[in-house]
Design a protein around this nucleic acid. Structure first.
Length: 111
RNA sequence: UGAGCGGGCUUAAGCCAUCGCGGUGCACUUAUGUGCACCGAGGAAAGUCCGGGCUCGUGAAUGAGCGCAAUACCGGCUAACGACCGGGGCGGAAUCUGACCAGCUUUAUGCUAAGGCGGGUUCCGUACAGAUAGUGCAACAGAAAGCAUACCGCCUUGAAAAAGGUAAGGGUGAAAAGGCGGGGUAAGAGCCCACCGCCUGUUCAGCAAUGAGCAGGGCACGGCAAACCUUAUUGCGAGCAAGGCCAAACAGCAGUGGGACGCUCAUCCCCGCUGUUUUGACGCUCCUUCUGGGAGUAUUCAGAACAGCAGACUGCGGGUAGGCCGCUUGACUGGUGAGUGGCAACACUUUCCCGAGAUGGAUGAUGGCAGCAUGGGCAACCAUGGACAGAACCCGGCUUACGAGCCCGCUUUUUUU
RNA sequence: GUGGGUGUAGCUCAGGUGGUAGAGUGCCAGACUGUGGAUCUGGUUGUCGUGGGUUCAAACCCCAUCACCCACC
C-alpha cells in the first residue's frame, strides 16, 4: 500500500483553509482536523508541534504517524483532507496507532 | 587486579528478506506514470563563537581621513582566520644539584635537599604590545600609599624635657624604596664586596622573538591597560528567504466594435440592458363660460435621477500566487591508495572513484540470524535496552553533547613483595 | 538565517563608578485578643546560573558555556 505525493496535502493555502474551517477532534497526544474536498480521494498531512525536544524526535513522530496511516488508509471513506497534529507525549508506534484509529472512528470515517 | 577522572586516535551495531519514501540514469508511454539499475544523514549535520567562497547593493569595494569593532612575543602555514604548527619569555609542579644561610651531631675539610638563596633537567599551563606619551584608580588598616614617611625602636648628646643621626628589627597592609650573605659602623645604610636581580653601552649566536658574554652604573625606574588610552595591523553592508528566469488572477494603460445609403476613406455626432420615480411631447377620454382652458390616463418617444445586471478580446510594462534555476565536481586542495619535501602545521606529484540534494521537507515499519550491555539463572536460555543526535548553498577552524574499542597520564581499592 | 535580552532570598525585583548584598512579600518568635485576622516589635533567608581568568580584592571587568525568553525576514 503506497503513499505517493498526490495523496499528501502540500499546498500552504489548502492547509491554511483546513485549519481555519475543518472539523476538530482530539485526544491525548494527537489532534485531527478534517474537511471534505472535491477530489474524490483522501489527502493527509502530519504536523508535529514545536515543543518537541529536538528534530530527531519530531521527525520520528511524523514518520511513525505516516507509516500508521499508510498501513490503515484503505479502510476509510474517501474525499477528505486530513491534518494530524502530533504532541510530544506519544511517540511509540502502538500509541500513535491507537490514537489515530480512535480519532478516525470519532470522525466517522470508517466504512 | 577493579573503579574513577583527564587527553589522543578509530568507529558510529553487522547481515538477509518483504512493504514503503526521495533522487539520478535508461527504456516505454506521454505530460504524467510504469519498469529496471544504482544511490540515499554526521563526527559532531548542533551551538552560531570566528574565518572565507558565492550573490546582490551603493559612484566604487581600489585609495585617503574620521568613528566603531576585533586582534596583539617571534617565525611559519593557509584562500583566510582570533584556528593550527614550531620556537622564545613568564608561571607552576616534580626531580637532580652548590652545603652559601639555617638545622642536627660524634665538632669536622661531618650529616641533612624539609625551609631560604643560587644552578640544571623533564612535564604542564600561558589573552604574552606599550606603565619613561598622558589622564586616572587603590576601601579598611597603617606614622607614611606615589617624586612619601618615622609610631614602637636602635645610636649619640642631655639630669630631664628634648634635639640630632638611622631605616637593621617590630607592627599595619595585597603592596613600604632591590634579595641574600659577609665586611663595616656609635647605631646603621649599596657605605664597600661575592652571587642573583635591575639600568646603560657593547660583542657574539640566531631570519626574529630572545639568549650568552664583557665593560660600566651602586641602583629606583612600584602595581593596575580583561580602567580610559597610545601604537601597529585587519575589517564596506546584507545574506541562498542572496540572486536570476518564466508567469495565472485582480487592478492599471493602450487598442479592437456598432449606427446613416451599395462599397471605401476622412471628419462630426450618438451608443448597452432591466426596473422604479419624475418632467415634457403626441394621442385618447371627460368637463367647460368653447379659435381657448382644465382634469385624468394605457401605450409610445425623449430627457433626468436612483437601483440592479452585463462589462468581451488583444497587447503592454511592472510583477503577486505558483513554478524552474541557483543545487552540488569541490579554494589545481572532495574521497581513496602510493610517493617526495618539511621537526611539524602543511605543500607537491600521481592511481582509481563520484558517495544525499529534500522543499509541509525523503532514511521508516515488520520478521529472521549473529553480536554487545544490564538483570535473572549452575547451565542451556529468558527478559529488557540501543549514546549524542537529523543534511537544508558550500567549505576551513573553535566550542559543546556522547556509546564502544585501543593507547597515554593521574588518583584510588584489594592482593603480593 | 539574522539580531537582542534575562539569570541575585521561597516569590517579585533593586544594587553594576570593583571595597565584602538590599527592599517588598513570605517564614519564625513575641506583644495585642476569649480565639483568629489585621496591626506593632524583633529575627531569619543567598556558593549572585555554571566553569575559568585579570586584580590585593569580582554580583560588578574579560572569556567560555548552560538554560529560558523575545523580535525580524
Amino acid at each position: 500500500m503506497s503513499f505517493p505525493k498526490a495523496e499528501k496535502l502540500r499546498e500552504k493555502s489548502d492547509i491554511d483553509r483546513l485549519f481555519r474551517t475543518g472539523a476538530r477532534f482530539s485526544c491525548k497526544g494527537m489532534a485531527l482536523r478534517i474537511a471534505k474536498n472535491t477530489l474524490g480521494k483522501n489527502r493527509a498531512v502530519f504536523v508535529p508541534v514545536r515543543s518537541f525536544r529536538g528534530s530527531v524526535e519530531r521527525n520520528r513522530a511524523k514518520r511513525v504517524a505516516r507509516e500508521v496511516w499508510r498501513l490503515n488508509k484503505a479502510s476509510f471513506a474517501q474525499g477528505y483532507d486530513l491534518a494530524f497534529v502530533l504532541y510530544p507525549d506519544a511517540v511509540d508506534f502502538e500509541i500513535i496507532r491507537s490514537n489515530m484509529l480512535f480519532l478516525l472512528r470519532k470522525a466517522g470515517l470508517f466504512r
